[in-house]
């Protein structure tokens, strides 16, 4: 196994911490549209997109999954772990694939991440509840996920341009 550079460990630690704080901040914001559960900004994705561009896809996967587990343990809801995991995994897969094509900017990458996060959660809900009724939320979440994704992508884009990370 290749040893990780100290600097990289430090940067990744910072990124996990940032993702966790952003998750916490977001959890304190009351939902804008309470009638449709799942609409959210996805602030933590700023850290994930940043790491995806600065360090690479393996590091982004590490950051994202660590965040899910730590946030769930610290101030999340253990009953929702599967939803968070499915959302995170699907979102990561989509973002990594889209970035690999080299055809899109971090905005589209973040949009796909946001929409797939919602789609993953709905998929888990449909499986666990054995119902397709929850699919009705999908179009609404696709729209909200797109809007949130654009905002997050713009923010992440600024950070990617301005912050220098040498590892």
């Amino acid at each position: 196994m290749k040893t990780m550079k100290t600097k990289k460990v430090a940067v990744m630690g910072l990124a996990v911490a940032l993702a966790m704080i952003l998750s916490f901040v977001e959890s304190q914001i009351p939902p804008l549209f309470p009638m449709i559960p799942g609409i959210k900004m996805g602030l933590a994705n700023i850290a994930v997109v940043f790491v995806l561009y600065k360090l690479g896809w393996k590091e982004a996967v590490t950051i994202s999954l660590l965040r899910v587990f730590l946030v769930t343990l610290l101030f999340g809801n253990i009953g929702l772990l599967w939803y968070s995991l499915a959302g995170a995994v699907l979102s990561l897969a989509g973002m990594i694939a889209l970035k690999k094509t080299g055809l899109f900017s971090e905005i589209a990458v973040s949009v796909v991440g946001g929409v797939l996060h919602n789609a993953g959660q709905i998929a888990v809900a449909c499986i666990l509840f054995e119902t397709d009724k929850l699919l009705y939320y999908l179009p609404f979440l696709m729209i909200s996920g797109t809007l949130a994704g654009v905002a997050i992508g713009l923010l992440a884009g600024i950070l990617i341009k301005r912050i220098r990370v040498e590892v």
Partner: peptide, 13 residues
């Protein structure tokens, strides 16, 4: 391409 992708997602929705 970003705009096309975003438009595509919204149309699908």
């Amino acid at each position: 391409l970003d705009l096309m992708l975003i438009g595509g997602v919204l149309i699908l929705a």
